[in-house]
Write a protein that binds this DNA or RNA. Structure first.
Length: 405
RNA sequence: GGGUCGGUGGCAGAGUGGUCAAUUGCACCAGACUGUAAAUCUGGCGGGCUCAGCCCUACGGGGGUUCAAAUCCCUCCCGGCCCA
C-alpha cells in the first residue's frame, strides 16, 4: 500500500473539496497501520438506463480508491430513485415505477463496470433496508433535521421564491442518502459538488448513530457538450459510456475549446504536465488537443485500436471529405423496394437519418442530402433512388451505409 | 375546506371567437464560413400525401355553445398564492 502522502496526492487531484481534510488524513493513516481498507461509498440513482461521462467523474475517483486498495461500496438507489433527488433541480423529478428502476439498475451495473472493478465492489440496493423501515423509523429519521435547515438548501430556496412546488417527500431524499451511509458504515462518500448537503447529512446521521462520520469528497460537475450546462440525459448534452467509438469521438470533437481543460482533468489520467502542453497553443493546436482528448476517451471505453480507427475515420470523413472506412449500417427491407428503387425521403427515414418524411424533404431543400460514392447532392425530394447494398447516404454530418435484407 | 390566479409546442413566454400549426427568445437541425470549436450570416423546426396544394392531430382531460374555439360555458384533474 502506498504511503499516506502518496495516497493523498492522487486522491486530491481534481476534487472540489474534501470535508474535513484532516479526518481523511487520519483515516488513511489508521487504515495503513491496521491494514484495514476504507469503505468508500458512491450512490447512483437508476433514473435512466444510461451512464454518461458526468457520472464517471466520481466513479473514476472510486476506481482510484480501489487501486489504492480500499473497499468500494456502490449504492444502487432503487428507493431514492423513487423519491428523486432535488439537488440542483428546479422541479420535482418525474415518478418512476419500481420495475423500470430495477431494469435500469441492471443496465447501470453493466455500464458502471466499465469504470470500476465491479468484482471487487460491494453493491447494495438501498431498498434492501428502506423497504423494511417502519413508519416509526421514518419519523425518527425525519426528526433528525429541521425544516429551516432543509429549506436553507439553495435549490429549495430558489423554488420557494419562484413559487414552484416542493413535495414533502423530496425532503426525505437527503435523509435517505445519509442513512445509506449509516447502513453501510461509510468512511468516505463521493459525490458531485451539488451533493455536499446530502453528503453532510450522512455525517450527522452517522454521528447520531454513534458511528465515526464519513469524509465527504466532492468532485466538480462535468459540463456537457454545450459547454455550459451540466452533463445530463435530459439535456441531451452527454456522451454515454456505452456509445459506439465513432459517436464518442465525434461528440468530443464538437465540444467548445473552453471545455478541453476540465475534460482532460476529469476524464483522463493525463498528467498536469501533459495537459499543460496540450493546452499551450505554441505546442499543440486546440484541434489536435481535442483529437487527443477524444482518443483518450474512446481508448478508455473501447481500447486503443478502436480509438485509432475512430480517429482515422473521423479525419477521412471531415478533414478529407471522403467516405470513412467504417460506416454504420442501416438495414433496408428488400420488400420496400420497387424495381430496385425507393423514394429518397422514406429511404432517409428508414435509414434513420431523418425522423420523418417531412424533415427529410426539408433537409433536401436545404442541400444537406448527398448519396453514393460521388456524393451526389439530392435536389428533388421525389427522386426514386436506385438502392443497392453498399449505397452510402449522408444527411449533414450523419452517414450510413445501406444493406438490403 | 374557502377565496383567488393559473395549466399553450423541449424550455421560457405571447395570443383571449375566425387572418393560429399558433408572435418572439433559448435550445435543436441544416446551409455558407471553418478546426463537426468560437463568432457571424441564412434557412428550418407536429405529422401524412400524388407536396407552391390538400389532409390529419395539437394549446391539462372530458363535454357543450357556435358556421367557426387555444380563445366562451360546464365539469374533472393538476399547480401557485392567501385564508382555515
Amino acid at each position: 500500500m502506498k504511503s499516506v502522502a502518496e495516497q493523498l496526492g492522487v486522491i486530491r487531484r481534481g476534487t472540489e473539496q474534501i470535508e474535513p481534510f484532516e479526518e481523511l488524513q487520519r483515516k488513511l493513516e489508521r487504515s495503513l497501520q491496521t491494514k484495514k481498507p476504507l469503505r468508500v461509498k458512491y450512490g447512483i440513482d437508476p433514473t435512466a438506463a444510461d451512464v454518461h461521462l458526468g457520472h464517471t467523474v466520481p466513479l473514476r475517483k472510486m476506481r482510484l480508491f480501489q487501486e489504492l486498495g480500499h473497499q468500494a461500496v456502490l449504492i444502487i438507489g432503487n428507493y431514492t430513485a423513487l423519491v428523486g433527488d432535488p439537488s440542483g433541480r428546479d422541479q420535482t423529478r418525474a415518478k418512476l415505477t419500481q420495475e423500470l428502476v430495477e431494469a435500469n439498475a441492471q443496465e447501470y451495473l453493466q455500464q458502471v463496470s466499465k469504470i470500476i472493478d465491479i468484482s471487487k465492489t460491494e453493491v447494495h440496493r438501498n431498498g434492501d433496508w428502506f423497504s423494511h423501515y417502519s413508519f416509526l423509523q421514518v419519523m425518527e429519521l425525519c426528526g433528525k433535521i429541521t425544516v429551516q435547515r432543509m429549506m436553507e438548501r439553495d435549490d429549495f430556496t430558489k423554488r420557494l421564491s419562484k413559487g414552484e412546488p416542493i413535495s414533502l417527500h423530496e425532503c426525505l431524499y437527503p435523509l435517505m442518502q445519509g442513512q445509506d451511509s449509516v447502513e453501510i458504515h461509510a468512511d468516505i462518500e463521493l459525490g458531485g459538488s451539488e451533493q455536499l448537503f446530502n453528503l453532510m447529512r450522512g455525517r450527522h446521521l452517522q454521528q447520531d448513530a454513534g458511528q465515526e462520520p464519513q469524509v465527504c469528497i466532492t468532485l466538480p460537475i462535468l459540463r456537457g457538450l454545450d459547454g455550459e450546462k451540466r452533463m445530463g440525459k435530459s439535456l441531451k448534452n452527454y456522451i454515454g459510456v456505452g456509445e459506439p467509438a465513432r459517436e464518442q469521438f465525434g461528440k468530443t470533437m464538437r465540444i467548445p475549446d473552453e471545455l478541453l481543460k476540465e475534460w482532460f482533468e476529469l476524464l483522463t489520467d493525463r498528467s498536469e504536465a501533459d495537459i499543460a502542453r496540450f493546452l499551450d497553443p505554441d505546442q499543440t493546436t486546440p484541434f489536435e488537443a481535442k483529437k487527443i482528448l477524444a482518443g483518450d476517451i474512446v481508448t478508455f471505453y473501447h481500447g486503443a485500436e478502436a480509438a485509432k480507427v475512430a480517429r482515422a475515420d473521423w479525419e477521412k470523413q471531415f478533414s478529407e471529405k471522403q467516405d470513412p472506412d467504417h460506416i454504420p449500417e442501416a438495414k433496408i427491407e428488400g420488400a420496400r423496394l420497387a424495381e430496385g428503387k425507393m423514394n429518397i425521403c422514406p429511404l432517409l427515414v428508414t435509414a434513420g437519418l431523418a425522423p420523418s418524411n417531412k424533415e427529410a424533404r426539408r433537409k433536401i431543400g436545404e442541400g444537406a442530402v448527398h448519396i453514393g460514392p460521388d456524393r451526389r447532392k439530392i435536389t428533388d425530394p421525389n427522386e426514386a433512388v436506385a438502392v443497392e447494398s453498399g449505397l452510402v447516404l449522408r444527411l449533414g454530418r450523419k452517414i450510413v451505409r445501406v444493406t438490403i435484407s
